[in-house]
Simulated assay, not measured.
Amino acid sequence: MSTIAAQTIIKDEDPAAFIRPPPNKKKPYPFWLGGVAATIAASITHPLDLTKVRLQATDDKRMISSLKKTVANGGVRGLFDGISGTWMRQLTYSICRFWAYDESKKLLGANTPNAPPWKLATAGVMAGSIAGIVGNPGEIIMVRMQGDAAKPIEKRLNYKNCFDALFRMVREEGTSSLMRGVGPNVVRAVLMNSSQLASYDFFKAELLKTSYFEDNIIVHTAASFAAGTVATTVCSPADVLKSRIMSASGAEGKSTIELIRRSMRNEGAMFMFRGWVPAWMRLQPTTMLIFITFEQLKNLVDWTRSFRESN
């Protein structure tokens, strides 16, 4: 028997010769990554969010005049009124929604590039239902702290920070106050996640199906721009109601139906889209910053893991 033939037999009889190491399954990203990205984005766009809330919940009529009024009353620092409430909201609501969205996609089998839009939207609905409840206290605190300086002095709550707001709400209004406006907030969270998160995944996947794009910052920017416009329009009615209910204190904020009737009677149906422009101007860069930052944080995690494995 020739040497080559003998080697062939040995190779054929040796199972180890055919064993291939299984491909390394990519580790999941930290569940809090999306919340950190959202916190960074919200910190940058806080002045626009502040203006949106004041337009929706006070007598301010125009975005520029509202911004000027804020600076006149509180200086440049006034543009960051309630920033600790924003951080509390993002570190509860956003962490929860990104985690729940990923888990819901796994449950529905939608964590693939070819996932149908209805599955992505359903995952967004599931995530929003959970995050809207978990993040409700932070949402109330954020809205109250942002709108407080625009109120008459005698009606201001004067919370020192988000923790002072939390303790005072429980002490002065009871634990149930933490769930005030939870209905509209959950509706808005469902609308936001099924439009913003799902549409980002959809637009990103559609762009990557073409031969013109790669998975880079250009695609992330384009997909997030489209997602921001979709989300602003879909969420506007619930956003307006949420801001008005949460900014109210005492008996005036207890009846959602009465608030809707009063707003319809005084302003007409278009009150539901009041503040759309500042909402878009705030949500658009926020959405873009969230997803661009999120993708870059994922790249950083990948780089860190590769560095550790190579050393």
Rank of each mutant, 00 (worst) to 15 (best):
S2G: 12
A5V: 14
A5K: 10
Q7L: 15
Q7M: 14
T8P: 00
F18C: 00
R20C: 05
R20G: 04
P21A: 15
N24A: 15
N24P: 14
V36N: 04
A37N: 07
A37T: 05
I40P: 12
S43N: 08
P47D: 02
P47W: 01
L55Q: 02
T58Q: 04
R62I: 06
M63R: 06
S66V: 07
T70C: 05
V71G: 03
V71I: 05
A72N: 13
N73M: 08
G74K: 00
C96K: 07
R97M: 15
K106T: 04
L107G: 03
P113G: 04
P113K: 01
A115G: 12
P117N: 09
T122K: 05
G124D: 09
V125Y: 03
V125F: 03
A127P: 04
G128N: 02
G128L: 02
G132M: 09
I133W: 11
V134M: 10
V134G: 05
P137G: 04
I140N: 14
I141C: 01
M142L: 12
Q146H: 05
A149W: 01
L157K: 07
L157M: 11
N158E: 10
C162P: 03
A165F: 03
A165N: 01
R168Y: 00
E172V: 08
S176N: 13
M179F: 15
G183Y: 13
N185D: 05
V187T: 13
R188M: 13
R188E: 14
S194Y: 01
S195R: 02
L197C: 02
L197D: 03
D201V: 07
K209N: 03
T210I: 04
D215E: 09
F225G: 08
A226W: 04
A226Y: 04
T232L: 03
A238L: 06
A238V: 07
V240T: 04
K242N: 15
S243K: 12
S247W: 01
A251S: 14
K254Y: 06
T256R: 07
I260A: 06
R261D: 09
R261M: 12
M264Q: 11
M264W: 14
N266I: 00
E267F: 12
F271G: 00
F273W: 07
G275P: 06
P278A: 06
W280V: 10
M281F: 11
L283V: 05
P285E: 04
P285F: 00
L289P: 00
L289F: 08
F291M: 08
E295Y: 12
L300H: 13
T304L: 09
T304E: 10
R305V: 08
